[in-house]
């Protein structure tokens, strides 16, 4: 198989970028999309040119590293997978394929197709955890959790943090990402004590990072490799509303919901 690739090249976050066209030949049907790009890079290297920078690691759809917008869709034309799980047999021979990075203010470009997604980490640091010390935890069976509830929490927790939801959203919103974590922890008894502070802190962190707001178009769910449902965004909205009511009644509400833990 043969393809013409239109790839975004950009040297650094502040430099201007452009599309450069590359030919990928000797491509076999059984190659993954990233292996096809590996092939292009190997040829560039031998020719003394700089290879295309793109991110990858586990190549089995779980680490969340890979991040390509392929012909206008994050992670490409198939649903429920990451870029690394996309195989070339999915494309017609001779196709023109346009490859762009995730584009969002909160995800500055590092180089070519590699973006900086540390904004998502900072949102997690704002409250995406249960503040329990190591040691002294009660027996795992001390708190019973219904199977359905645990399964729903697991649905939400399966987020791989790739950021495709942000990339697909018209508003570059990270709501599905935040919703997944907030819902996961709000559904479990272990996450309940901090649910009020958590949702407020995470939403505020999300805003600080420059993500947009949710337009309820659900493009995020359409591209999510783990098919995380936008139902969790409704849960997040509910949690946030609840937090607003609870917090406004707190006698001495502190500025930062996690300040007491410092």
């Amino acid at each position: 198989m043969r393809f013409t690739l239109n790839i975004w090249r950009q040297n650094g976050p502040t430099e201007s970028g452009r599309f450069v066209s590359y030919e990928a030949d000797d491509v076999s049907q059984g190659m993954s999309f990233l292996e096809m790009l590996d092939g292009v890079n190997q040829k560039l290297l031998v020719a003394g040119e700089e290879p295309v920078a793109f991110e990858y690691d586990c190549r089995e759809g779980i680490c969340g590293s890979c991040s390509l917008v392929i012909d206008g869709i994050p992670h490409g034309p198939d649903q429920g997978i990451t870029t690394c799980q996309l195989y070339m047999r999915r494309f017609p021979d001779g196709a023109n394929i346009t490859i762009e990075p995730w584009r969002a203010k909160a995800f500055p470009i590092v180089k070519d197709l590699v973006v900086d997604r540390s904004a998502l980490d900072r949102v997690m640091q704002a409250g995406g955890y249960v503040s329990v010390n190591t040691g002294g935890a009660v027996d795992g069976n001390a708190l019973l959790i219904g199977k359905d509830q645990a399964e729903t929490a697991m649905d939400a927790a399966s987020c791989i943090g790739c950021g495709a939801c942000v990339a697909a959203c018209k508003n570059a919103s990270a709501m599905l990402f935040v919703a997944a974590k907030v819902s996961h922890l709000a559904l479990l008894p272990q996450g309940k004590p901090e649910r009020t502070g958590r949702v407020t802190a995470m939403i505020e962190a999300m805003d600080r990072e420059g993500f947009g707001s949710c337009g309820n178009q659900y493009e995020c769910e359409a591209v999510c490799p783990k098919r995380i449902s936008v139902r969790f965004i409704a849960t997040l909205n509910r949690e946030y509303r609840r937090a607003g009511i609870v917090e406004s009644a707190l006698p001495n509400a502190s500025e930062s919901p996690h300040a007491e833990s410092v």
């Binding site: 249960v130 329990v132 190591t134 935890a137 795992g140 399964e151 996961h184 272990q190 996450g191």
Partner: peptide
């Protein structure tokens, strides 16, 4: 296991 449960890890559960 206890520690992981306390951290909110959604282990598979029985009914």
């Amino acid at each position: 296991i206890d520690q992981c449960v306390a951290l909110g890890i959604p282990f598979a559960r029985e009914y």
